[in-house]
């Protein structure tokens, strides 16, 4: 991602991050005018505000996140979607691209279907609503899903999409990554196997430097120096 020092500063819950001179950001808390980390993660500081980027943990949804969800329940005018958050997310017919009559939800999405959607809202008691109004939102057919921990999604995407572009160039698979730590791959079975192994590799080495190079080396051992046109 960024080319910082070889070792990043890891902070542990309860670790002191700063005194009066800093403001508490995400992943921190203030106590007696001092700022402490509440998470296990990497310390960041920007404009006098310290934060902690977490290195582990479940997916917590934020509005506008692109997620890959699996339908777990269906009612006459809603669906419940598993997006790997602590809570199921609701999807209402008004937020889909289709015109759905009451009680007719099953014609469009059934339990077990996989969708791409965006998080519409998350309220203070963590009721999550999804929307499929976005251009890219749709039901996914074919392909396979791979899980990655949500804190490592950024590494799978890479700086300005470099990692994902490289994977697509080499394997000629279609690849979609949700912020919630699910990736969808579609292509030839042997290529999909390569992608899922590369994802496993990223999962294990996400916090290390030179990740892109080692993934590239792995892909070159599989395919040689191939970089053809990417399928759209």
């Amino acid at each position: 991602m960024d080319s910082g020092p070889a070792r990043r500063e890891i902070v542990i819950p309860g670790e002191l991050l700063g005194g009066r001179n800093v403001k508490p950001g995400r992943g921190t808390f203030a106590e007696r005018e001092e700022v402490f980390s509440s998470l296990l993660g990497i310390r960041t500081e920007r404009y006098g505000r310290v934060g902690v980027i977490r290195l582990s943990g479940r997916y917590m949804p934020y509005p506008d996140d692109l997620v890959i969800g699996i339908i777990t329940d269906r009612g006459p005018s809603h669906w419940l979607v598993n997006i790997k958050a602590p809570y199921p997310a609701a999807l209402h017919p008004a937020e889909t691209p289709w015109r759905i009559d009451f009680g007719d939800t099953g014609r469009y999405l059934e339990i077990g279907d996989t969708i791409i959607a965006n998080v519409l809202t998350v309220d203070e008691i963590k009721h999550i609503e999804l929307t499929m109004q976005d251009m890219d939102s749709r039901r996914l057919t074919g392909g396979q899903l791979v899980d990655i921990s949500p804190s490592k999604v950024a590494r799978l995407i890479g700086a300005r999409g470099s990692m994902i572009a490289m994977l697509m160039d080499f394997t000629r698979c279609r690849l979609l990554v949700g912020q919630n730590g699910r990736a969808w791959i579609d292509g030839e079975p042997k290529d999909m196997a390569v992608v899922s192994r590369a994802v496993e590799m990223i999962e294990e080495r996400a916090h290390m430097m030179g990740l892109t190079e080692s993934v590239r080396a792995f892909l070159e051992t599989e395919y040689g120096m191939r970089a053809g046109p990417r399928p759209r």
Partner: peptide
């Protein structure tokens, strides 16, 4: 704290000692 740091901090030199290959295949490709 040491145990947590050991799990999460891998220094650059430890990284260079690792094999360049991907982790061994855990399951047969579908």
């Amino acid at each position: 704290k040491d145990a947590l740091r050991k799990r999460y901090a891998v220094t650059a030199e430890e990284f260079s000692d690792l094999p360049e290959q991907a982790p061994p295949e855990r399951r047969a490709p579908p």
